[in-house]
Amino acid sequence: MNLAFCNEDHRYEGGQTMECRWRIHLPAARVASALSVDSEPPVTEDLKPPAIQCVEASVMWYTEGKGDEDFNVHYFQRFGPAEIATMDWSCEHMLKTTLPVSPLSYEGNLLRIRWCVRLRLFLSSGNEIVAQHPFWLTATPLGG
């Protein structure tokens, strides 16, 4: 999977519209769980379109640090089996959303707030592949 942000520095101001293009490359075989969130042993399988049940694209923030993780999804799009069947895998797909003004990305001592675009592939084997592309949500400059 690859994903390209419209801003090369991956920095967006609150209230700005973010556009990003994502694409799933379908090689003959891939270690499916290399990027998986669960800790099951690696599984090698064919990633042909029938092997992908659905794809979820989301723009979200989550917390990292000492406290338990919190997260909130700002934008969510799901491509179900019907869309997957008609999806052209050679083309890039567009994700466009107007970002909120808060919470801004934050790098603290106990707490970090991260924004990301997350792509999650659900495979027919039951495995999931998750790719996470971070970006920075920053404040609108004063007088801007």
């Binding site: 917390t63 338990d68 993780e69 603290g108």
Partner: peptide, 9 residues
């Protein structure tokens, strides 16, 4: 940083 509140942070 602005004020922030989520369930655990």
């Amino acid at each position: 940083m602005h004020s922030f509140r989520s369930p655990h942070n």
